[in-house]
Structures are given as C-alpha cells and as structure tokens.
Amino acid sequence: MPVLLVAEQALNGLQYGMMLFLMAAGLTLVFGVMGLINLAHGSLYMVGAFACAWIAAATGWFWLGLLASLIAAAAAGALIEILVIRRLYSRDHLDQVLATFALILVFSEGTRWLFGSFPLYLSLPPALTGAVTLPGGLQYPLFRLVIILVGGAVAVGLWLMITRTRLGIRIRAGEADREMIAALGVDISRLYTIVFALGAALAGLAGALVGSIQSVQVGMGEPVLILAFVTVVIGGIGSIKGALIGALLVGMTDTLGKALLPGVLARFMDASSANTIGASLASMLIYILMAVVLILRPQGLFGARA
C-alpha cells in the first residue's frame, strides 16, 4: 500500500480526531462538572455551523462568521442552561435525557423554520484554500491542517485554563465536591452557566469548521454527538486529556479502518466481498475499541475511579 496514501489517511484521521475533541471537550466538562447527560450538545454544534454560514454569507467575511459561531453557540448554551437545564441537576438521569432530547427537536424545528430545509454552504477565504506540499511530496488541503492546528491550540488553551486559572480551580473543585465549594461562597449556578456556555462554544466552533468542508444542514449534530459520547467514555469523564487522547484514537481508528481494511481483506478474498466486509468491520471498530477500554479500564483511560 502506498506510503503517501497511508500518510494522507493518517492526517485525515488526525483532523477528524481534532474535530471530535472540540465536541468531546465541552461534553466532558459538562458531564464531569455538572453530572448532566446533555443530548442537546449536537444541536449547539449545529447552531454554530448555521450562525457561521449565515453571517459569512451576509457579510462576505468568513472570520466574522467564525466569531459568530462561538457567540451564538455560547449564548444558546447559556440560555438553555438558565431556562431548562438548571431545573434538571437534582433530577434523575432519565429526566435529563428526556428534556435534552426534547431540546434536539426544538432546535431542529426552529432551525428549519429560520433557514429552511435546504443545506447551506460556506466559502473559505482565499488564504485558506488550496493545498500545501508536505515532506515526501504529499499534497494536503490547507484548511484541514488549520483544523488540526486549531484543535491543538484549543487543547493547550483548555489545559492552561483548567490548571492555571481561578476559573479552572473552581471547575476542578466543582467536579470533586460541588457542595463544598458552594459552602465556601462560590456561586455554583454562575459556575455551571459558564461551564455550559464554554462547552457550547467549543461545539459551535467544531460545527463551523466542519461546515466549511461539508454542508450545513438540519440534524448535522446528531451523528457527531454519538461519536463524542464514545470519545468521552474512552477518555474518561471529566478529563480534558482523556477527551483529546480518546478523540485521536477514535478519529484514527475510524479513518484508517475505512481506508485500509478493504485493501487488507482483498488479499484473502475477492474485491467485492473485501469492500463489503471491510466497510462493515470499519464501522464497528470504534465501538470495539470502546468495549476493550471499558473491559480493561471501566473508568476510561484518564477517568478518576469512583
């Protein structure tokens, strides 16, 4: 198998993993700090994508659309936390699932009412189009490299925030013992709103970046949400490091599996069967990976033991 093909697919897996990290980082913060199962996280991803597409189309400035994705997703996240989510913290997880599933329907129908059922498309600025030549002669799209760099920068920024800032200390304390930090005078409701808005902003950024290489459409967040949950389970609930490692594992496993498995199986069977079986096995690989991690380490790779 050509080395350049493997290298290209590895970069695709890295780019996919960084996109999943942006989704999973916010999800694991909300899940770990607030103990909330938020099925509406994918809808915030969709909000960011539509905000970016609409503002970029209206103004002609992609960068303004990217900023709008952060603001719109964070504002939507803060609003639903105050109006809906705040009433669910003391409720059973089933109530949280039902309420946030209802939010998916509200966001989907509201977005369809505002923008219609047809997909939107984002145009990249000239500075981000084209390909760059990497060592070995590999031509790779510049914007996909930008996504990788943005994901890495966000990972470093989150690590610095969690470990070096007062907000990060409060987030870690809230994850460990929310009753104690409330007793010490920390406004726990405000902290939860900030955490939820931060997670929403990261999801919105992921939606805007992915919407720039795919179409922006209603319901685009649900498939990504499933993979984000898988990433959180693999990495460990509440761990940013776990979200990053889990996202990279899922991205690489999914991308390389789909690209390489049919070719490997073709050495032992006919091409048609190899393509069919390879595609089926590739779609199962990330769930097999999750099962193996849970068997060996039930709390996830970097999750704390209960």
Rank of each mutant, 00 (worst) to 15 (best):
A176S: 11
M18Y: 06
P126C: 04
L198C: 06
A53L: 13
M23R: 06
A183E: 03
A56G: 11
A271C: 00
Y16G: 07
S69F: 06
R144N: 10
P298A: 10
L248C: 10
T253F: 07
L294M: 15
G174P: 06
F62V: 11
Q217T: 12
S272K: 11
T165Y: 04
S215D: 02
G13E: 04
A40D: 03
G151L: 03
R87K: 13
T276F: 08
R144F: 00
Y140L: 12
L149V: 15
R166T: 13
R267G: 14
I71T: 15
G204R: 07
A203D: 03
A197W: 01
T276C: 00
D92E: 13
L244C: 05
I240F: 01
S108T: 09
V233Q: 01
A304G: 12
L198G: 08
F118R: 14
I171C: 01
I55Y: 03
Q214N: 12
T129N: 00
G303K: 07
I245Y: 02
P119E: 01
G242Y: 06
L294H: 08
V33G: 00
G42Q: 02
A206W: 00
A247F: 02
G168D: 00
G42L: 03
T133V: 14
G26C: 07
Q139D: 09
L198K: 05
V106Q: 12
L29K: 06
V84Q: 01
A57R: 13
T163F: 00
L36P: 04
P141F: 12
A206G: 14
G130S: 07
S273K: 10
I162M: 03
Q139F: 14
E8I: 08
G65R: 14
F143E: 09
V106H: 12
G246V: 07
I162Y: 00
S108E: 14
F115W: 07
S123W: 10
I162H: 00
D92A: 11
M19T: 15
A197P: 06
L79P: 02
V210M: 11
V250D: 01
S43N: 08
A74I: 08
Y89N: 08
L184D: 01
A56Y: 09
Y287D: 00
R91Q: 12
T165V: 06
L145I: 15
L138Y: 06
G251L: 09
F107Y: 10
A25P: 02
L94R: 11
L39R: 13
A58R: 15
P135A: 08
T163Q: 10
L227I: 10
E179P: 05
W113K: 15
A57K: 13
I148G: 01
S215W: 02
L281P: 05
L256E: 06
A131C: 06
S212W: 05
A208D: 03
C52Y: 11
F118Y: 10
A102G: 15
G26R: 13
D95V: 15
G236F: 03
S43G: 07
S189F: 01
P223V: 09
P125K: 10
R305H: 11
D177T: 08
L198H: 06
Y89G: 05
L244Y: 04
L83S: 08
